[in-house]
């Protein structure tokens, strides 16, 4: 069956399409406008912080002028760093202070490996 439209029907259809296009474009630009207005408002409410960065002149650190530390000083610094780091971490020797006996004290370790009874294990290993 052939599709056949009269001139009036064709004009109505085109007009209707044009109206939908204009409405769509209008809605899109309206949304964009609202977004810009909102951002502008937020910028005013929460202004940006001032840039506090300081430019460091490149000549401040020069290989020629960097002093080479004295070996004794270097050792002292290394020792002090290790000491400071260790103290921060703490806990050195804490495992040695636990009540639990060391694993290796039982010479017959093979025997110990074979202990299947929980009570035996507890007796031998103080666990």
């Amino acid at each position: 069956m052939a599709l056949c439209l009269s001139d009036n029907e064709m004009n109505d259809l085109l007009q209707h399409g044009l109206e939908i296009s204009v409405l769509g474009l209008g809605v899109t630009f309206l949304a964009l406008g609202l977004l810009i207005a909102g951002m502008s408002l937020l910028t005013r409410v929460f202004p940006a912080k001032p840039d506090t960065r300081v430019d460091i002149p490149e000549t401040a650190v020069s290989p020629e002028t960097t002093p080479v530390p004295d070996p004794e000083v270097a050792v002292a610094i290394a020792t002090a760093l290790a000491l400071a780091q260790g103290r921060r971490q703490g806990q050195l020797g804490a495992l040695l202070e636990t009540d639990r006996s060391p694993w290796w004290y039982l010479p017959q370790q093979d025997h110990a490996h074979k202990l299947s009874n929980k009570e035996d294990r507890e007796f031998y290993y103080d666990v």
Binding site: L96, W103, Q109
Partner: peptide, 20 residues
């Protein structure tokens, strides 16, 4: 100078040593 703490740390590690 750091031999003492290194030895203590080593003893801690080897507390669970197992060999046969």
């Amino acid at each position: 100078a750091e031999t003492r703490p290194r030895l203590i740390a080593a003893l801690e590690l080897l507390r669970n040593k197992r060999v046969s």
